[in-house]
Design a protein around this nucleic acid. Structure first.
Lengths: 198, 198
DNA sequence: GAGATAAATTGACCGCGGTCAATTTTAAAA
DNA sequence: TTTTAAAATTGACCGCGGTCAATTTATCTC
């Protein structure tokens, strides 16, 4: 009747599934990922994948969560931004990554409200970390007067998220010339949001 | 080699499909809509549906578009709001409608960036109308000083959309007690966005 | 080592959206 | 009326995500 610890076999299988999935994504992109391909190349049955991950999104969440974490590392490495334009600069790579593939966007959107609970999901932890990081930046910029003081940094940070997803949603609706980036469209919103001129 | 006008037969079929779909939605909700059920009850083959609508979303867009239009009618009927809280009041029913079903949210999000082009889609027209309506309200409120003047009404209107979808995205991630509404969470964002106290 | 029991894996099967070559229906042209 | 070509419809078929009863494998107990 007792529950036992997971066996090494299970851990290996999980690792293999993720590894194979990453290889496929590297070639086909996230939209090109097929569950059947993953299990075939991993040498396991379909059911196995779904015993390791709730659904296909569960697997994707691991892959994308890892990528988001990397992006956040690079963001943090750049240090505290000194003004709003530098905030946008920090954001830009993450935006471009998400803009790569609608699948990423939809997954992040689905997980975007998982506040705190079930942080076992990497992607959730990533999103929480992101909001916290932004809030820290903003609090600092509030002190230097670059950012408005009348609203708490947490609210402003959440607002950035809102604009971020808004811009991305538009991004996926239109055709793109290669020389424009989603970060550009973000600019007017963030300036108005963080530094109103009233 | 000529192209001919559509026949009455086609119009009837299309109408029947929409009618049946609406009946099913009334009972099962949007998430409960199955293409197979629609074609069965409409007495046509599956392929027929896809010759009338690009995909299932195409059909949904018609149904949801119609509903959005109704909501906008009621919004307009209430007349110009006098302050931000009244703006939120006007928004509230639409929010609640979208909050009803994730399918609605995702569809509107997908079409949210269809600016102008292909207005043949009802839902696109609805979304354009919405932004225009908001912009009109805001321009008026800018004159009375209820809303900030440093940003164009169009930008502010788009920003409302962003917050609206943000709040809804969070809404679908958490459990709800029946006594809270998505409009409540919208409040702090809209006040900060439209009337900064700096 | 021989059961006993939980963990891990399997793969046939299902639901559902979407496709397309073939067929039927309509209406304009001869 | 017959011919002809476009319009409309058909339904067998496919792709792909997800399920679950059955089977195999590992680990614990005596």
């Amino acid at each position: 009747m007792n529950t036992r610890a997971p066996q090494q076999r299970r851990l290996k299988t999980r690792a293999k599934l993720i590894e194979v999935a990453q290889e496929i994504v590297a070639v086909q992109g996230y939209s090109g990922l097929r569950v059947e391909d993953v299990v075939d190349q991993a040498g396991v049955a379909k059911g196995t994948l779904f015993s390791h991950f709730k659904d296909k999104d569960g697997l994707l969440a691991v892959l994308i969560g890892a990528e988001v974490m990397t992006q956040l590392d690079q963001m943090e490495a750049q240090g505290q931004p000194n003004n709003i334009n530098e905030v946008i600069d920090r954001l830009s790579p993450l935006l471009s990554f998400i803009a790569t593939d609608r699948v990423i966007f939809e997954l992040l959107l689905r997980y975007s409200g998982s506040t705190g609970a079930e942080i076992d999901e990497v992607v959730t932890a990533g999103l929480v970390r992101q909001v916290t990081l932004f809030a820290g930046w903003l609090a600092q910029l509030q002190h230097t007067g670059e950012v408005r003081n009348d609203s708490p940094a947490e609210l402003l940070s959440e607002g950035i998220q809102a604009f971020l997803y808004h811009v991305l949603a538009l991004w996926f609706c239109i055709e793109h010339t290669n020389d424009d980036s989603p970060a550009t469209s973000l600019q007017p919103f963030l300036h108005s949001w963080l530094a109103p001129k009233t």
